[in-house]
Write a protein that binds this DNA or RNA. Sequence first.
DNA 1: CTTGATGGTAAGTCATCACTTACGGTAAGC
DNA 2: GCTTACCGTAAGTGATGACTTACCATCAAG
Lengths: 111, 111
Amino acid sequence: MPYQLTIDALADPTRRAILDRLRGGAMTVGTLAEGLPVSRPAVSQHLRVLSDAGLLIATPQGNRRIYSIAPNGADELRHYLNSLWDDALAAFEQAALAKAIQKSSKGNEND
Amino acid sequence: MPYQLTIDALADPTRRAILDRLRGGAMTVGTLAEGLPVSRPAVSQHLRVLSDAGLLIATPQGNRRIYSIAPNGADELRHYLNSLWDDALAAFEQAALAKAIQKSSKGNEND
DNA sequence: CTTGATGGTAAGTCATCACTTACGGTAAGC
DNA sequence: GCTTACCGTAAGTGATGACTTACCATCAAG
């Protein structure tokens, strides 16, 4: 399950709020925490989780650390979701086809 | 956060195992539980969560219930991930461009 | 060198959740 | 009608995780 960390990281609303704040570009921890309803240490812990999942990149710059979204961080998860729902759609269409055939053979059962 | 239920549902490994078992097509609860390392009631509870998230469809058939993957169940989540990482990629490229300009102006600072 | 700002870590608490066993309700088979 | 199979629900338990306050390390400014 290579994307377990990814999903766990994305499942928390505060962490998604962090990602949304980083949508437009990089930011320091302090600036990041100002716009969030939790304490700065909580933000640090979330940044740790997001970084461990490969979703963020930390760039130390002097005293501070600038975080930005890793451009390919969610690729595996996105690929998994796409393939799963591709298969599901195929199965769905095949089931609909089977049902149609069944119904048509029922319509012909007096032949 | 319209996809909160979706992510919560997908975050659990057992629930993803259920979805993976349903990749190929629909299945009853009993058959589903046979291939899983947890009890059948646990599977029922997971099916409840997945259904509430709109990821599964239950089709009652006599005594049993046949579950299948909802073809569009993860659309909103997938769209969110795509848009978020689209923005992140754009920000990343813009940052790289800004860095290149800065470096080139530094190279010309003796002009 | 001292002071202030930045941010990661430790410890503790509270809520949530995944799981189990026990039970109830409903449809099919004899 | 009685029994059996299928499956959802209730209640209880243990583990995980998000949050807080307190603390420590590091770099910059004076």
